[in-house]
Design a protein around this nucleic acid. Structure first.
Lengths: 208, 208
DNA sequence: TCAGCATGTAACTGACCGGTACGGTAAATT
DNA sequence: AATTTACCGTACCGGTCAGTTACATGCTGA
């Protein structure tokens, strides 16, 4: 099994790359398989041999989107070792910058769930899988920063993050994404300040 | 021009109502016109006589979604006269409750923009029109509550609001929407507290 | 009684959808 | 040299998409 040293990308790779661009830009439902294989300079049988169905191609695309999300996340974490607050802020900050850049259409994973509400859809599954892990990773960070209610803080930040994704599509380059970093700072500060502003908290427990 | 006292809804109304349910639940792109007219117990010519095209039917549906949003917003405002902070919190609170209710699929306007990224699409236009007005209304409220940076606070709240909409689809009934009210309180508090936490603000100006 | 309007019936168009049967070609293996 | 194996393309399928046509029906008020 010697390696094929061909420098031209295989058909499957070209198809996945092309499908990724089109799916992200126009939405998966709006893009037909004929359009994909034509732009990829390939053919439909190659697509179906490599991916089995359009839905599975969408799932593969979303898996790539997930990997990209984690590489962004991990970069923010690696940039600020042992400083969970700075890690989250770095992530949110970079997120806002990307969202305001031209050509941004938010998060492919989020968009896919909106386009495919059916939980049985393979793309839907992949997307919510990554989002669940994002929620859990955020909780790890908020716990590490000794937030009073780490789950609640993580969820608040998650609202902000998803808000950035979707408002970039609603409002374009002048959208509210620029407010994300400041808002994240305020939320973290409110959850880690010494004197809690409200006193009706069952201490030591973070049930919600 | 006597009124037609018929108690059976006209065909156009049935079509719009049925299309609304289907569009909201499954997404506009996933629903065909045949499916709509069948469930509405009507026919395609009636649909096209009344709405001209599917895209315009989508726009009509979104106009209704916009009206519903404003009725929710106005209800929150009316419930707390002359108290902009309570008005916003009431809106966010009710929003979170609705988003966590079963069968919720977030905001039809937001979803439509995700499904139809093309700014020329009539549905896209209608949706962003309403969202722009929402942003402006939020700014009115944050100005009225004497926030230090009303635009920034309004945008932060908007991120939260859109986050609620979209996370209800990503995480379901146990999603982060429950954290929205508390987060909104924290953001408002941070923007209206007497001593600003950061000192690098050009005073009196709220450029962003 | 008749005109006018709203609605339904039925058939149709052309384009596009996702998906497939089948045959070819070139390199690796023997 | 013969054969396997991996890869790829041509041509086509039935179904569904949005949208249209021509005509029939029934209810409305004048």
């Amino acid at each position: 099994m010697a390696r094929p040293p061909s420098d031209t990308p295989k058909a499957a790779d070209r198809i996945l790359a092309t499908a990724g661009e089109l799916f992200y830009r126009e939405g998966a439902r709006a893009v037909g398989v004929d359009q994909i294989v034509e732009r990829a300079q390939s053919t439909k049988p190659s697509l179906y041999r490599a991916f089995g169905s359009k839905d599975q191609l969408i799932a593969a695309y979303l898996e790539g989107q997930g990997q990209q999300m984690w590489s962004n996340f991990d970069a923010a974490v690696a940039a600020h070792p042992d400083d969970p607050k700075a890690q989250i802020l770095a992530y949110v900050d970079a997120l806002g910058d990307r969202a305001l850049g031209k050509g941004s259409r938010g998060c492919g994973l989020t968009n896919a769930v909106v386009e495919y509400p059916d939980p049985k859809h393979p793309g839907h599954r992949v997307a919510v899988g990554h989002k669940d892990r994002l929620r859990s990773r955020l909780r790890d960070l908020t716990r590490a920063m000794d937030a009073r209610k780490p789950k609640k803080l993580a969820d608040s930040l998650l609202l902000l993050i998803e808000g950035v994704f979707v408002t970039s599509q609603l409002f374009g380059p002048d959208g509210p994404a620029g407010a994300a970093r400041g808002a994240a700072e305020a939320l973290i500060e409110a959850h880690t300040r010494k004197a809690p502003k409200a006193a009706n908290d069952p201490p030591g427990h973070d049930r919600v």
